[in-house]
Design a protein around this nucleic acid. Structure first.
Lengths: 327, 327
DNA sequence: TTGCTGTTTGAAATCGGTTTCATGAACATA
DNA sequence: TATGTTCATGAAACCGATTTCAAACAGCAA
């Protein structure tokens, strides 16, 4: 691999001049600039990003820390993050934690020692606060947990999401509506629960719920619990689209028909929700916008050089499809 | 952030000694080692990985280059790669190319300039060969394309996959079997096609096929084409589990019942295949093993310091579920 | 021609680690 | 006691860029 000094020698200039031509950081005579460009082309010089990072104290990397990349919602957000980062000359480090606190801590430490420029994180672990506190990076959380230190949060309106989904089921004629409630350490789960409860109260309906995690497997467990406790549920608010998939499967096994016997509203609005059969009525989050904005906030903080707290909340939309039926 | 020199000063030793204690690269007297460890704890010293990488010419990073992380199969493999990499102290850079040759080239260049230790790639782009050629990194391809330069390939037995899936449909009584054929620049697609054709020929059946890409959307287009050309298909070999999902949806819309009117066999064996309704009969690839092995091969080449060609082929298994029915 | 200003330019310092290499201490051997 | 050997240790070189700073140079006025 050619070094900057090779280019400099070939062009008959100093490496400082080569650096200036590459980065446009100072004026270089047209004559020398031409020679440098020629030498770069001839040697196929590709500046060593590590050396650059060492001096600049920035590696143009953003860490994306998630419990599991198998969570389709998080992977769709990851897709948007990667795209926006790439557009801006940044790379994304994928950090899958399996909800393992040690892995989370290790990744945060690692990102900081790699001069990463920021962290985008979804994690419900209180132990993390300490780690996040000690690292000076801009941190954008996608799930504001109560006391955590972070520079910004990007979310969608979970209260509204819980509320409109519930109201929709009520309009569909459901009276016995059960919420699969997400882990309550996430503020989004709390908000959604509140929206649900408020909608119920406004219509004189008794709020009912079971606890559930977000992924396929946890969703299935949550659904089993739900059927045991509320075998006569008429409408179900799933914790996620993936959980809705598991839920539907269980209903199907029981010979119950959707939406005629039971109605389902999913959450997230992942691509899959539209493609599954039956197509899932769901509360869609603006996934693309969330991912892009998260990156945007990191870059903003990097440019400004200072960390200032921001909270972004996007609106959600209800997608009416085949797992609910309005009368 | 504390530097190694701060630790050295506090412990009353040189930074060389601190480095030796951290890395265990040479003997240090127990007395000094103790002082160093104490100083590290007191300062909260976290070695700068970038500085280390610069000298060592290794950043302990592996690039994972894929057309789209939204492809569940690739994201499940990515999960295994991330896990295995982390176990070995490596990080994974997520490189989503959207099949965009420029993005692919940019990522390869970037990984090489970052002193990455290897690349794991799924890409069908011939233009890439040039880029891959010029970078000295170990490269593991997950889809050996004909002439590309790579150090190793990890795949599963696509010929066998195509064959057993076809034989299964034949055993189920299908005579009119259509293959959704994947892009033929992938050797895996070619092999699967061959397995399909051979199975057909052995049973005196006319091979039929349409072209299709792997993801939801491309799968839906492929499925539409299939129904136009072969409205009376009895059995369909989907190009992927995700395509099978789209396919099922279309059949459902047409009021055709699965498996009674038409049977479907998916491909890949992603988690979703088991959870969708009806559960998908599919040819399962050993996803976990493929991901782990790919990382293993990279690490092997890094240790040996030399690149030697290897080709790994894992066996596939047929998962019998609800979209086919043996008579 | 001299003196002044303003711009190009390269030598050297810098980023923060790791490793080499020379030194000196400790110990064994003659 | 003199000599050889082993081993822990720190100063300095190194990785490959970027940036600082002072010198060289060009342009212009007097």
């Amino acid at each position: 691999m050619a070094h900057i000094s090779d280019v400099a020698r070939l062009a008959g200039v100093s490496s400082a001049t080569v650096s200036r031509v590459i980065n446009g950081t100072a004026k270089v005579s047209e004559e020398k600039a031409r020679r440098v460009r020629k030498a770069i082309a001839e040697t196929g010089f590709n500046p060593n990003e590590i050396a650059r990072s060492l001096y600049k104290k920035s590696s143009r990397m953003i860490g994306y820390i998630v419990p599991s990349i198998l969570n389709i919602f998080l992977s769709e957000i990851g897709r948007a993050i990667e795209d926006e980062a790439f557009r801006n000359g940044y790379k994304v480090i994928l950090c899958n934690t399996d909800q393992n606190p040690e892995k989370e801590a290790a990744y945060i430490k690692m990102l900081s020692s790699m001069n990463a420029d920021g962290i985008i994180i979804t994690a419900n672990n209180e132990h993390l606060d300490e780690e996040l506190e000690s690292c000076r990076l801009p941190i954008v959380v996608l799930d504001k947990s109560a006391g955590a230190r972070y520079s910004a949060s990007v979310q969608s309106d979970s209260y509204e999401g819980g509320k409109i989904a519930t109201e929709h089921l009520i309009r569909c004629g459901c009276r016995k509506i059960v919420l699969m409630r997400g882990p309550q350490q996430y503020s989004s789960s709390q908000q959604r629960f509140l929206g649900y409860v408020d909608a119920c109260n406004e219509h004189g309906i008794q709020p009912l719920f079971v606890e559930s995690g977000f992924d396929y497997r946890e969703g299935r467990d949550g659904a089993r619990e739900l059927f045991r406790r509320f075998p006569d549920a008429e409408g179900i608010l799933a914790v996620s689209d993936m959980a809705a998939l598991s839920l539907y499967r269980l209903l199907h096994e029981q010979g119950r028909s959707v939406p005629d016997d039971v109605m389902i509203v999913g959450y997230d609005g992942v691509e899959l929700s539209e493609l599954m059969t039956p197509a899932l009525t769901t509360v869609a989050q603006p996934i693309e916008a969330i991912g892009r904005r998260a990156v945007g906030l990191i870059l903003e903080q990097v440019e400004k050089g200072k960390i200032e707290q921001r909270e972004i909340i996007f609106p959600v939309t209800l997608k009416l499809r085949e797992t609910t039926k309005q009368i």
